[in-house]
Computed example of a mutant assay.
Amino acid sequence: MDLPTTLAEKIAALSDGPGCYIYKDAAGIEIYVGKAKNLRRRVASYFQARDGHPAKTLRLVQETVDLQVIATDSEVEALLLENVLIKELQPRFNIKLKDDKTYPLLAITREAFPRVFCTRDRDQPEVDFFGPFGSAKELYRAYHFLMRVFRFRVCDLDLREDDPGRRSFKPCLNFHIKRCSAPCTTRVSQADYGEDIRALRAFIGGRNKGTVVSSLRERMKRAAGELRFEDAARCRDQIQAIDRLKERGRLRDYDEPAAPTIDIHAGMERLQAHLGLAAPPRVIEGFDIAHLQGTHVVASLVQFVSGVPNKDAYRRFKIRGEAGDGDPGNDDFAAMR
């Protein structure tokens, strides 16, 4: 079967960059939405070597008479835009993604300082869901990019603006590697953190990158004018991360190493499963024993609450032996007792 002239011309004119494509039938109805890191190669593959296609793809190709393309600057944006288009257009050849409840979602809680995480559980209260996404691996890659830009929290701490404990709380590793703005402390206000979450929601919409960048530029200028230079620097870093999508926007660029575990919530769930616990551990304490050639034995205690270091509970000990009459020697088990 020969391709309609208009469709063939559009395929030939496609770029080699990333974006989303929309197939339409003879009535002009959108019947399928897809994304690609190389639009020309991906779209052309549907209409070449048709004998190797499954039956569903053959039906799609036979019914497609027109094509619409939306180019993006990166694969990350294409992934987010594809999700939005499927929700808006409800194309019938994307029916599995629309109906299957096992696909992963991006979740944002409605707390004073919202958490952002990936999940397959749609039944959680007070949570806004974005998705579903066809690939968990691709979603997590996009999630790691979003974490770098918008620096949202992933911990389970109950945070409030008026909590006096925020003045002395120590931020976790995510803050130090610029994955979180540390709302557990007073480094970021509820208003500024809320601005970051609103920008995140807009960016997830797939079409609002320009609006998000403009808003960040305004926030940066306002913060600098008010001499809030740390806030201005954070906005600057966010703008630069979004701008770098043009050069570093492949999804695989945002693979994260297996350790350290940046997603604290997921790490607690894995620890719960590994230890066979009824619920994720709330408090974890670790001891380290040290000595000088078997004498002058000391110990240190570190504590984590919901996966976050609680440095107020850190302790140092001098080990005096079971009877209190001297060092226990080079015996860590005796020192622990």
Score class of each variant (00 low, 15 high):
A36G: 02
L3M: 04
D25L: 02
I11W: 07
V65A: 00
D51N: 13
N94C: 07
D121S: 08
T5R: 15
T5W: 07
G52M: 14
N94M: 11
L79Y: 01
C118V: 15
L97T: 10
L85H: 02
R120F: 11
V69T: 01
E63G: 06
V76K: 08
C118R: 07
A78M: 11
K96I: 11
I22V: 05
E82C: 07
L39D: 04
G34N: 03
S74L: 09
A71L: 06
R59K: 14
I31G: 04
S74G: 10
L14S: 00
I95N: 12
V61C: 11
S15Q: 07
K37M: 14
S15N: 08
P4C: 07
C118M: 15
R115C: 08
I108S: 00
R115E: 01
G34Q: 02
K96V: 14
D16W: 09
R110I: 03
S45G: 08
K24C: 13
D66R: 08
L58T: 06
G28F: 06
V65C: 00
T119E: 06
F113R: 06
C118F: 05
E77Q: 09
V33R: 01
C20D: 05
D100K: 15
I70R: 12
L97F: 09
V84I: 12
G17N: 03
V127K: 03
I70M: 10
D16N: 15
I86V: 15
Y23C: 11
I108L: 00
P18T: 04
C118G: 06
Q68I: 12
I95Y: 12
A27N: 09
E88T: 11
Y32E: 02
A26W: 14
L89V: 05
L89A: 05
T109P: 09
T57F: 11
V116G: 00
A71H: 09
A78F: 07
E88V: 10
A36N: 00
D100L: 13
I31R: 10
T119D: 05
A112K: 04
E77Y: 01
P18L: 03
T102A: 12
Q62I: 06
I86W: 07
R50L: 13
E75V: 07
T109H: 02
R41D: 13
D16R: 09
L39S: 05
